[in-house]
Nucleic acid binder design. Structure first.
Lengths: 166, 166
DNA sequence: TTGATTGCAAAGCATTTGCATGCTA
DNA sequence: TAGCATGCAAATGCTTTGCAATCAA
């Protein structure tokens, strides 16, 4: 976590920006929260620590964290952008339960290898990729579509009908 | 294309809805346009045929097409929902060029097999998945970041900075 | 001191909804 | 005739921007 902070401050300096109390607090709260946070989620958490922080600053700081390589944007189909740790959290993909909103992270070297082969065949130079598998997790299958609160590790994602795979 | 129309009309009937001139026109234009159309793209195309069609109706009809299994929603990171044919167009994934906005469709049985294995391991029941590989296509690599109009099969997708993989 | 930062309010943008009118079955 | 469909305008929800006041370097 100290390392992440150094990275952030180095990025701030390199870009000719300034270190502020708000940015430090936002980074702090983000680093200690191992979840997929929306800007609003983070805003509320930060507010507990320092009520004098605006929504706008959280939005802007999250973009800064992405620039610095500390955060990564993810979207799970509920129309809002979420952020996850990106430093020392190597690439992975997600399964998203459309019943309870839980996400399962996974990584497959084979999957990556096949993708490499595919892009090579098309002479496509990839910069990033995103694989999301939507469906119903084991717990929700048992509960036959009656998820409870504790089945959701994170706030429930609600879909209009079918998830629109944003 | 006749078959698709039948499917649509059957869906309309089954759902207790009504067949209208607008819906027929929208379906017609959609079916004959083999592109990833946003609601607005389709709205403009339909307007050429029948100026008395509103944006709202196009939105609502596209949802109907998705319900009927004729269309599939896709998102390429420019913040708008696009629709592609889903009937007789089996599942495939996309490479998206962040320079010119072109999309390359591909399918890999191995990829699907590995995904099946992964979800099985987690006892996850998948309903759909979405794999998008963002990067630079062969043409744009040659042009070294100076894409021309003809390099884009579809309207250019613009990103703020890095594509936010919505 | 200078220019970046902040946070409120307002604007943007894609999408959705309310509602009076029009039209299918 | 009943009630679904239409399309305008307004609302929605997330995100971004304008701007005057504030603050780091």
């Amino acid at each position: 976590m100290t390392e992440e902070k150094e990275i952030f401050h180095r990025h701030i300096q390199r870009a000719g920006l300034k270190r502020t109390a708000q940015r430090d607090t936002i980074l702090d709260v983000f680093l200690r929260t191992e979840k997929h946070l929306s800007s609003e989620d983070l805003y509320h958490l930060v507010k507990e620590e320092d009520p004098n922080v605006g929504h706008t600053t959280v939005y802007r700081t999250l973009k800064l964290l992405v620039e610095a390589g500390l955060a990564r944007e993810v979207r799970f189909g509920d129309g809002r952008t979420r952020y996850e740790h990106n430093y020392n959290h190597p690439h992975h993909d997600h399964m998203i339960c459309t019943e309870c909103g839980k996400t399962i992270e996974f990584f497959s070297a084979e999957l990556e290898a096949i993708q490499d082969a595919i892009v090579a065949k098309h002479k496509f130079r990839p910069t990033q990729h995103s694989l999301r598998i939507f469906g119903v997790c084991a717990q929700c299958q048992r509960k036959a579509g009656a998820p409870t609160d504790e089945s959701a590790a994170e706030p429930r994602i609600r879909f209009a009908s079918a998830p629109n795979t944003q």
